[in-house]
Write a protein that binds this DNA or RNA. Structure first.
Length: 269
DNA sequence: ATGACAACCTGTGGGC
DNA sequence: TGCCCACAGGTTGTCA
């Protein structure tokens, strides 16, 4: 479920509930995630106190006085705060039990998510990540410079975490529509002025989605259990065969990098 | 370096 | 009604 707005929503949702709380216990029911959950996690995390909650790309960085718990939600993961004695459901893989009788519970049917334990923010998975899309350093000229000579479709280009992080399939489709750029166009053949517009629409679509608590697809819920409300205003994602909201042309669907790609054949060139 | 593609895993929905 | 296949929000690793 999670694209960057969902991860940010989760980050903001759980932060006030875990900050300054001590970890009473850690229950790992299923350690087989994208990478095995560290066997020593329970021993190390027990007694730690959460000191900060941050996000880098789609990684949640739950900092404690003993180290950093790095969590990725993968395709289907979610984190919820709930009473520690709430019966665990199928796919409730990990509980971080807090000292107030509640717990941070990780649920992930597909198990593409991950839990890592870090001593510092230096980690191979965080090494070669591109800039945050909402940072000032991410702009049209950056995209233009990085794209020269690249033949891959511009959609896959902006979904490459080494170029810019946090642009997932839904928002890549939306941002390209808003910028009037055809998703299959070679990245190296998009002009500077159009990249300036694209950088803008990426910031806008992600920013708006964060404001509205993420996109609700199937059962996404934020850290406090409230659903997001962005789905209803998607412009192209999931709307193949339906009329373009701008020009009424029938939206088309193609596959790029194995991902569903929806666009307006008349608005996007 | 680049780009194409398989892999990880379960659940769901559409077509027959 | 039920079965089977394709596909789903992400990312890494391999190979040509």
């Amino acid at each position: 479920m999670p694209e960057l707005p969902e991860v940010e929503t989760t980050c903001r949702g759980i932060a006030p509930h875990i900050l300054d709380r001590n970890v009473r216990d850690v229950i790992v029911r299923e350690p087989r995630l994208r990478w095995p959950v560290p066997r020593r996690l329970r021993k190390i995390l027990k007694g730690a106190r959460f000191t900060a909650v941050n996000r880098r790309a789609k990684y949640l960085l739950l900092e404690t006085d003993k180290g950093i718990l790095m969590v990725h939600l993968g395709m289907s993961g979610s984190l919820r705060i709930m009473p520690a004695d709430t019966p665990a459901l199928f796919h409730d893989h990990i509980d971080v039990v807090l000292d107030d009788g509640r717990c941070l519970r990780y649920h992930d049917p597909r198990r593409f998510g991950s839990f890592h334990w870090l001593q510092t923010l230096e980690h191979p998975l965080l090494d070669h990540l591109g800039p945050e899309p909402l940072a000032a350093s991410f702009d049209g000229s950056y995209l233009y410079e990085r794209s020269r000579g690249r033949r891959i479709p511009v959609k896959q280009f902006i979904m490459d975490g080494k170029i810019v992080v946090g642009v997932g399939n839904i928002y890549a489709n939306e941002a390209l529509f808003m910028a009037g750029i055809h998703p299959a166009r070679a990245a190296g053949r998009v002009a500077l002025s159009r990249y300036e517009l694209l950088a803008q629409t990426i910031k806008t679509v992600l920013g708006d989605a964060i404001e509205q608590g993420g996109t609700t697809l199937r059962d996404f819920v934020g850290g406090d259990g409230s659903p997001g409300y962005f789905a209803q205003q998607l412009r192209v994602y999931g709307r193949q065969g339906q009329p373009c909201r701008a020009c009424k042309s029938v939206l088309k669907e193609i596959r790029k990098g194995g991902r569903s790609t929806v666009y307006c054949p008349d608005c996007q060139r």
